[in-house]
Design a protein around this nucleic acid. Structure first.
Length: 609
DNA sequence: CATTTATAAATTTTT
DNA sequence: TTTATAAATG
């Protein structure tokens, strides 16, 4: 990052000062693409474009923040903060809150994460009795994956089944039934999943009246990491640019690592066809790595089936050779990595400038223990997030019930927190509360979304006597929490929830800290709606246990999955578990394409150094 | 009859 | 660490 201060090179300058119309910037690893994009944003603003009419689509909110803070150094904070910046999903959320009515979407809609979507699939799966047949039916996560692929790749279910889930093909009819019910349920409840944010955004651009308003919001659209976008995102982009065609995309086909999310490199390869008369600019000078490292990365990519016509070069000369260390077992690996890290720190490479990268979240488990033992502070990115832990989801479910009383899944989860209420009673209660609108009701006016919360306080609910006391505590907590500021709502709900948590989950201490953290985050928000939405669209990446509180230690090591390390850079990188079955993952070696993606993944792991 | 408790099994990568 | 299924319990 310190190398950022220098002047732009010729290609970078051309990209920054490009005029109107579509532009593709092919930017190899370490060629200063973030810098270029940030400068382009600044250039547009200085050239008279209103910052609030610029849309910057990135892969994570962190990436958007970083880019805009760089732009701020040029044009000032006041201007840069007005730029719309974030992920496709988060940026879809905003126009949908304002204009969603055009698609009969209530502004208080709630957003489900992937796990919630899977839970809803599961509910429907069991309601349709698809669980207990002789032939085994796909499990909830598989169902959610399949659905997501259908939406994001814009493919027919039969094609998706054939290419990605061949063992499920015999169940096509049942799967289709689940999907239809799933779509209906989301509609009735005013709930969107991640995919819907893209789908509805696209629909919004095509809606009568509001379509042109939404498309007219922006003069320039810039997209980062374009190689990892999918067809649904391309569709949105095409519509959003249909009038002024000012779209700049940046990417590198050699770094495409999200095909499991239906991203396709075709988007970047076919950009000139999708956006006629597009200009293409290549950034080929690498500022990050030594030619020694580039030699290695080039060699890694050499056997790939699909070639990437790009010649990276560097002026940074040769450097220390990369080391390949063979370990007997994981214990030895942890030991060697810890030693290497400390050794390098002695040589003046701070912990912050080092990172440990791995293929899957749990690959770092043993290392984390060892780091803890040696008092090496670290923060882990990727893997299980704290939003995915049961206790956080429980609290969130209660908040969502307050926000959107028609959100059936959240009721289902919340109600079962009450001692003595299981799936059966919860389902009955959901009926009695009027959460599920009968389908006939749909066109007929706006049913009061308040009513399930009012009904909750009624005395004549089908609650078993054994659960009655706990149920009263539950409804009082919700009632009292309802109108407090977001932070206090969590505080109030915790009074009810903490004993429940000890009964259900154990390991109460660590979980308690998480809840305190959650309350702390919430207290920074003015509205509950914003808090809940942000939490699902931009979840905090660190997962609970730190070796030391990183707020006190300002120097700490980064542990990260390779996927979440994209775009970062460090002086020293340790890639662990670089062995058969882990990199490449044995889950992904069935086809040539999958192996190539694992190859690119390894490439991405090597380039930050 | 529904809930709780016990037992066994599985577990990529992310918005 | 979570999740599906089976038996035990109230």
């Amino acid at each position: 990052m310190s190398r950022d201060g220098g002047a732009l090179n010729e290609q970078q300058r051309a990209a920054v000062a490009f005029g109107e119309g579509p532009l593709l910037i092919v930017a190899g690893a370490g060629t200063g693409k973030t810098k270029t994009l940030a400068h382009r944003v600044a250039y547009l603003i200085e050239g008279g474009v209103s910052p609030e009419r610029i849309l910057l689509l990135t892969f994570s909110r962190r990436a958007a923040r970083e880019m805009l803070s760089r732009a701020a150094r040029i044009v000032g904070e006041a201007q840069a903060t007005k730029v719309w910046g974030g992920t496709f999903h988060a940026m879809g959320n905003r126009p949908l809150r304002t204009y969603g009515r055009a698609l009969s979407l209530p502004p208080e809609f709630t957003v489900m994460d992937q796990a919630d979507a899977a839970d809803l699939m599961n509910l429907i799966r069991s309601e349709l009795g698809l669980g207990q047949q002789q032939s085994r039916f796909p499990r909830k996560d598989t169902l959610a994956d399949m659905y997501s692929r259908v939406v994001n790749a814009r493919q027919k279910l039969s094609d998706v089944l054939e290419t990605s889930f061949p063992w499920c093909s015999p169940e096509a009819a049942g799967i289709k039934a689940v999907f239809h019910a799933y779509i209906d349920r989301k509609r009735q409840q005013g709930v969107l999943d991640y995919d819907d944010l893209l789908l509805y955004w696209h629909a919004l651009t095509k809606a009568e009246k509001t379509g042109d308003v939404v498309v007219g919001l922006f003069d320039h659209i810039l997209v980062d990491e374009y190689q990892d976008t999918n067809v649904a995102q391309l569709d949105i982009l095409r519509e959003m640019c249909r009038v002024n065609r000012n779209v700049t995309v940046v990417g590198d086909d050699a770094q495409a690592i999200y095909s499991f999310r239906a991203a396709t490199v075709r988007n970047i390869l076919d950009f000139p066809a999708h956006f006629p008369r597009a200009e293409v600019i290549r950034l080929e000078q690498n500022y990050r790595s030594t030619s020694t490292i580039l030699g290695l990365t080039n060699a890694v990519m050499e056997p790939a089936a699909e070639k990437h016509a790009k010649t990276l070069w560097s002026e940074r000369g040769t450097g220390p050779l990369p080391r390949l260390v063979t370990c007997l077992d994981e214990t030895q690996q942890a030991d060697i990595v810890c030693k290497a890290i400390l050794e390098q720190r002695e040589q003046g490479i701070a912990l912050r400038q080092q990172a440990v990268l791995f293929r899957t979240g749990h690959h770092s488990d043993l290392l984390e223990v060892e780091l803890g033992r040696r008092n090496i502070p670290f923060v882990k990115c990727g893997g299980l997030k704290f939003i995915e832990t049961a206790h956080v989801k429980d609290i969130l479910a209660m908040l969502r019930v307050l926000e959107n009383p028609l959100d059936e899944m959240s009721w289902f989860r919340s109600l079962q927190l009450v001692d003595g209420i299981g799936p059966g009673t919860a389902r009955q209660l959901i009926g009695a509360l009027g959460v599920r609108r009968p389908p006939a009701d749909q066109g007929a006016g706006v049913p009061s979304a308040e009513s399930p919360l009012l009904a909750l306080q009624s005395e004549s609910l089908p609650v078993p006597a054994t659960a009655s006391e706990a149920f009263d505590a539950f409804r009082w907590a919700l009632r009292e929490a309802a109108d407090l500021p977001p932070g206090s709502q969590i505080d109030r709900l915790r009074h009810f929830y903490e004993p429940v948590m000890e009964r259900l989950h154990g390991n109460a201490e660590a979980r308690l800290r998480d809840l305190e953290q959650l309350e702390h985050i919430a207290s920074g928000y003015a509205s509950r709606r914003e808090f809940i939405t942000d939490l699902t669209l931009d979840p905090p990446t660190s997962s609970g246990d730190f070796a030391g509180p990183p707020l006190l230690d300002d120097d700490y090591l980064i542990l990260s999955t390779i996927h979440s390390a994209k775009g970062c850079e460090w002086t020293s990188v340790h890639v662990i578990h670089a062995a058969d079955g882990m990199i490449p993952s044995d889950m992904a070696t069935k086809t040539r394409e999958e192996i190539d993606e694992e190859r690119r993944l390894f490439f991405v792991a090597l380039t930050p150094s």
